[in-house]
Every structure is written in structure tokens, then in C-alpha cells.
Simulated assay, not measured.
Amino acid sequence: AAPAPGAPAAPAPRALSAAAVAALPFRIDLPSGFQLFEGRGAPDSHVYSVRRAGKTFAMIYTGSSSQFPIYDGEQVTAAGRVSVVVPDGTRRIAMEHLFQQPTAPNEIHVWLMSLEGADRDVAERIAQSLDPK
């Protein structure tokens, strides 16, 4: 739907500053050219997107109750997280990870967007790099 005549246009999303990223309840390795954007979350939750040149590679939720799992696949528990792993030819791809902890945010959920080839590989590496603080 188009905005009503005379209504202000929605502001373009702005990437989080290095200081804002450092203040998040998780660490993430963002390769050169990637930025983190905050989206709309529910009360007491936050949603972030990892983007490069306007393309979203991964999403991150922090809050009390995520929508995990998003993807169908084998759930594997390792390294303090539950991951959903799916076959991709002769290899396996970790499509999402859920961290649960007793303090807020109780859940940190990171998942890949539906991507192919090298973009999916980069998205998977970024999601694998996420760790709660």
C-alpha cells in the first residue's frame, strides 16, 4: 500500500554503529562490507538483520521466546546451542542456531536467509560466529 498523500516516507534503515554493535548481548564477526541493522521487535525483544549491499544474509532475534525452529532438519546440540542442520549435496548446512540462557535475553536465535552458493556459505559462517556475551 502506498503512503497517504502528504504522509512522511518511512526513513531508510541505518546500520548500527560500531559502538551499538559492541553493546549488543552477543558477539558476531561481520566480514568487510557487511552491516547490522535493527528492525522492529516486540516488547522486550529485538530483531536484527545482517546485510551487504541491501541484501539480507541472516536474521537475529533476542528476547524471551523465539520462533525456533524455522527450518525443518536435524536438531543438533553442541557448543552451548541447538542448531538445525540440513543436507546440501554431500555436505550439511547449519541453517539456524538457538542459544538459551537464564538471564535476559533468554533466547538468541540466528537463522540464514534462503540463499544459494557462495552467499549461503558466507551467511552460514556469519551465523556460526555468533556467541552470547
Rank of each mutant, 00 (worst) to 15 (best):
R27F: 08
V86K: 12
Q75V: 13
K55T: 13
S114G: 04
V21R: 11
E74L: 09
S129Y: 11
R40W: 02
R120S: 00
Y61M: 07
E107S: 06
A94R: 14
A20Y: 07
A18M: 08
A53W: 07
G73H: 07
V110Q: 03
F68D: 09
L98S: 03
S32W: 02
R51S: 10
V82W: 04
A7I: 00
F37R: 11
L16G: 02
F57A: 03
Q67D: 14
D119F: 05
H97P: 07
P31S: 02
E107M: 02
L112I: 03
A118C: 00
A12P: 05
S129A: 10
G33I: 08
Y71L: 10
Q75A: 12
I108F: 01
G117L: 08
N106Y: 11
S65R: 14
A118Q: 12
R92P: 00
G117E: 07
A58Q: 09
G39V: 11
Q128D: 13
L36E: 01
P132G: 10
V84E: 09
I70R: 15
M95P: 06
P25T: 06
P31Q: 04
A78V: 09
P25H: 04
H109M: 10
R51E: 12
L130R: 05
T77K: 15
D121Y: 02
G80A: 07
L16N: 05
A104P: 12
R14N: 09
P8Q: 11
A123H: 08
T103K: 13
T56P: 12
P105Y: 08
E96G: 00
K133Q: 13
E116S: 13
R52C: 08
G80V: 12
V110Y: 10
D119K: 06
G33P: 11
E116N: 12
S17M: 04
A118D: 13
F37N: 06
G80M: 10
R125Y: 01
A23V: 07
K55A: 08
E96N: 03
D29S: 13
I60N: 06
A58R: 05
A15E: 01
A42S: 13
M59E: 13
P31W: 03
A104Y: 15
A53P: 09
S32C: 05
M113Q: 15
A1R: 06
E96I: 00
L36I: 02
K55M: 07
D121A: 13
E116K: 10
K133G: 11
P105H: 11
P11G: 06
V50E: 00
E38Q: 15
P132F: 03
G39I: 01
K133H: 03
L98Q: 01
V76I: 15
K55H: 12
G89D: 06
S45V: 03
T56E: 14
V82C: 03
E96F: 02
A7M: 15
D88M: 11
A20R: 10
V110E: 00
M113F: 00
V122R: 12
E107G: 04
V85W: 04
K133S: 11
S114L: 12
V50S: 09
A58C: 14
M113V: 04
W111T: 05
